[in-house]
Simulated assay, not measured.
Amino acid sequence: MSDGVWAAPGRVNLIGEHTDYNDGFVMPFALPHTTVATVARRDDGVLRLHSADVAGDPVELRVDDLAPAARSGDWTDYPAGVVWALRWGGLAVGGADIHYESTVPTGAGLSSSAAIEVVTALALNDLYALGMDSRDIARMCRRAENVYVGAPTGIMDQMASACCAWGHALHLDTRDLAMRQIPFDLTAHGLELLVVDTRVKHAHSEGAYGKRRAGCEAGAAALGVDALRDVPFDGLDDALARLDDPEVRALVRHIVTENHRVERVIAHLEAGEVRAIGPVLTEGHASLRDDFRVSCPELDLVVDTALTAGALGARMTGGGFGGSAIVLVESSSEHLVTKAVQEAFAARTLDEPRVFTAVPSAGARRVS
């Protein structure tokens, strides 16, 4: 017998990549794909976790024993980490039976980890009357991922899953978590945004992610600012001239120009110039490929093929080294662009990519 059912979505980031851990600007929106949790409160201090998507028996953990040093290294670390983070924060959380079912593609850079974290936190917030708002939930989930799971991510994914609104993209300032919902109705303009899941994930991604984060922090320290968000776009050339390390210089250039791209996309959307965001997306991919060096041959293949086939813009989305790309197309050319990408993968004997239309959807919520 459950006490309720909750859902939290995955996300696509329209623009603003790797800026979140630099106190910068991002612009994600929620996908219709969700992780659904059916939850029953229990008062014996046992956390019982089961997933319809992972083979095996339910996993039972004692909440009093949860600690980063005791993590298991599998999917259960994400919900267990949330319970640990809530208790670390002084919140009275006991046990629970939680059954998960998810339609968020894993390993696709669409934040399946944030979805399971946020749905867990939201359910426990309701069942234990913890009094958290959506920002609190996102903060706790980020701590779970950073400290318990051990992934040095920013807060964008958790904020997107917790806070996005139907038909909108979320303009988020990751420094103070100020946010605005920006209308993002592509259908009204005869457009679609395709997500192309390359179905690849390169093994060096986690270590390379941490290396880039450390490089950004080194750049901020060398420039005497708290974070690279504090380097103004019109002062970029002067800032770059002060940096001796070419790798750090390239990282700084990406972050500063990417924050500026977020502002440009918002200006275009608010002016009704939706097609004009296409070239900005493509610029973002070039920066991620050349300066931040987090793309990969499969992502570049999607972007180059889609643009050749008539797409208005395209870029990788997510952390990189695999995962997904987004492609802005006229609705009338969706089939042509999709077919071109699939044929390009087949010609290189790569697994067929998964392609679907991204629909800006609702954030985390109680279902029943």
Results as ranks from 00 to 15, higher is better:
Ser368Glu: 14
Thr308Asp: 15
Glu247Gln: 12
Ile182Leu: 05
Ala203Phe: 10
Arg261Ile: 01
Gly131Leu: 03
Phe292Ile: 00
Met27Gln: 11
Lys211Val: 08
Thr187Val: 15
Asp238Asn: 11
Met132Ala: 12
Asp226Leu: 13
Gly45Asn: 09
Thr317Met: 08
Gly10Asn: 03
Glu343Phe: 12
Leu336Pro: 03
Asn22Arg: 03
Phe356Tyr: 13
His268Lys: 08
Leu191Met: 06
Gly310Phe: 14
Val327Gln: 10
Ala160Asn: 03
Phe233Ile: 09
Trp75Asp: 09
His268Arg: 14
Gly45Lys: 05
Phe25Cys: 05
Val59Leu: 13
Gly235Asn: 12
Leu66Asn: 06
Pro232Val: 15
Leu336Asn: 11
Ala218Cys: 07
Asp290Ser: 10
Phe356Gly: 04
Val39Pro: 09
His168Glu: 13
Asn125Leu: 13
Asp291Ala: 12
Asp97Pro: 03
Glu270Ile: 00
Val256Cys: 03
Ala121Val: 12
Asp64Arg: 14
Lys339Cys: 07
Arg348Leu: 11
Leu130Lys: 11
Ala37Ile: 05
Trp6Ile: 04
Met1Val: 13
Val46Ser: 14
Pro105Arg: 12
Pro58Asn: 04
Ser331Thr: 15
Gly219Asn: 07
Val195Asn: 01
Ala37Val: 10
Leu281Asp: 00
Asp20Asn: 12
Leu177Tyr: 05
Gly109Ala: 09
Gly322Ala: 11
His260Ser: 08
Ala121Glu: 00
Pro353Cys: 05
Met1Asp: 13
Val337Ile: 10
Arg199Leu: 12
Ile277Asn: 03
Thr103Trp: 12
Arg242Phe: 07
Ser134Glu: 15
Glu352Phe: 04
Tyr128Arg: 06
Asp185Ala: 15
Arg142Ser: 06
Ala69Gly: 15
Leu269Cys: 02
Gly81His: 01
Trp75Arg: 08
Gly207Tyr: 03
Pro9Glu: 08
Ile116Trp: 00
Thr153Lys: 10
Ala169Gly: 02
Arg71Leu: 05
Leu110Thr: 01
Cys216Gly: 09
Leu281Glu: 00
Glu206Asn: 14
Val82Cys: 10
Ala114Asp: 06
Arg249Ser: 10
Cys296Pro: 02
Ile98Trp: 00
Glu263Tyr: 14
Ser333Met: 09
Gly224Phe: 08
Trp88Asp: 13
Asp20Val: 01
Arg366Thr: 05
Ala347Val: 09
Ser205Glu: 15
Gly94Leu: 10
Val63Met: 10
Ile266His: 11
Arg348Cys: 05
Ala208Leu: 12
Ala276Val: 06
Asp43Gln: 11
Val231Lys: 01
Arg354Pro: 03
Ala160Gln: 06
Pro183His: 02
Asp300Ile: 11
Ala7Asp: 06
Ala220His: 02
Val200Met: 07
Met132Pro: 00
Glu101Phe: 11
Cys164His: 04
His33Glu: 14
Ala221Cys: 08
Asp304Arg: 12
Leu336Phe: 06
Lys339Arg: 15
Ala108Gln: 04
Thr198Val: 09
Ser205Lys: 15
Arg253Trp: 07
Arg41Ser: 10
Asp64Pro: 06
Phe345Arg: 01
Phe184Ile: 05
Asn22His: 13
Glu334Gln: 14
Asp173His: 10
Gly94Tyr: 01
Thr19Asn: 13
Trp75Phe: 11
Leu47Pro: 04
Arg135Gly: 06
Asp238His: 15
Ala218Asn: 12
Met1Gln: 13
Ala144Gly: 03
Asp234Val: 13
Glu298Tyr: 05
Gly323Cys: 06
Val12Ser: 01
Ser331His: 09
Asp126Gln: 11
Leu47Phe: 12
